[in-house]
Amino acid sequence: MVSAGAPGTAAAPPRARWRVSPVVAVLWALGMLVVVAWAAPFVWMVSTSLKQPGDIMTPTIEWLPRRVTSENYAKVFAQPVLRWLVNSLIVATTATALSLISGAMAGYAFARLQFPGRGVLFFLVLATLMIPSEMTIVPLFIGFLRADLVNNYAAFILPSVASVFSVYLFRQFFLSLPRELEDAARVDGAGRFRTFFSIALPLARPAVIAAAILLFTTNWNAFLWPLLVAFTEEMKTLPVGMATFAPGVGGQTQLQSFGPAMAAMTILTIPSLLVFLVLQRYFIEGVISVGIKG
């Protein structure tokens, strides 16, 4: 209490921070209320998934299930969910790995190599960033159909291998990297590939992490393309397969099916949410680096 100075003096002691004006308190409380509301759909989803069919539609809100049941999860696993999960894992990891490698190599080439037409080529690459994937999906689908590349893993993976986003991210990163280290390696007799794999790529770890996370979530959550090229039940990816639990809006069936639907959604959400919570700093930094510089 020694330094309880007059309120508002510039040189107020650290204690002054604890004095909260009512406006700030109200703003803070409002914000926190929104935080709770924002998290509520997740809680409600999990809670519904654990309820017995009779307890789901209640005239009053019941946040906690009266009787916990795993019946809804059993219904979900009656479908080939594990198969869908394996499909999703194979597709998302392969596509992410391939687009990381191709992105890193192409980005490196754009940042370091001198070749004729580099500027034009890079502009073309960037221009495709402006074209939303839905635009190219009809011609792409036709092409894949003609090449008989449907209903197999290659059909899922190939379109996402050449990721412009990944090329761009790596180019920007390599441009900011000092050349001297690579020059030293060259002087010591390392070729282009050696220099790239043993010097440049290890230095690009932050870019690799950011790109890997963003690419993986994109691939994991991809919906329209897998919906088009998966012709049979066992070739569906997890998001597409889980969509079959969608209850028809306004239909009578929906009264029965929200339990299994929410169980399916819980299963689908947990992996991405876990990855996000563990790596959230990289997530947000990744978005900043793409969102602002892109």
Binding site: F223, L238, A243, A246, M262, M265, L268, T269, S272, F276
Partner: peptide, 9 residues
């Protein structure tokens, strides 16, 4: 970070 199916359902 959640799949669009989840958002929708």
């Amino acid at each position: 970070v959640v799949a669009v199916t989840v958002i929708g359902l």
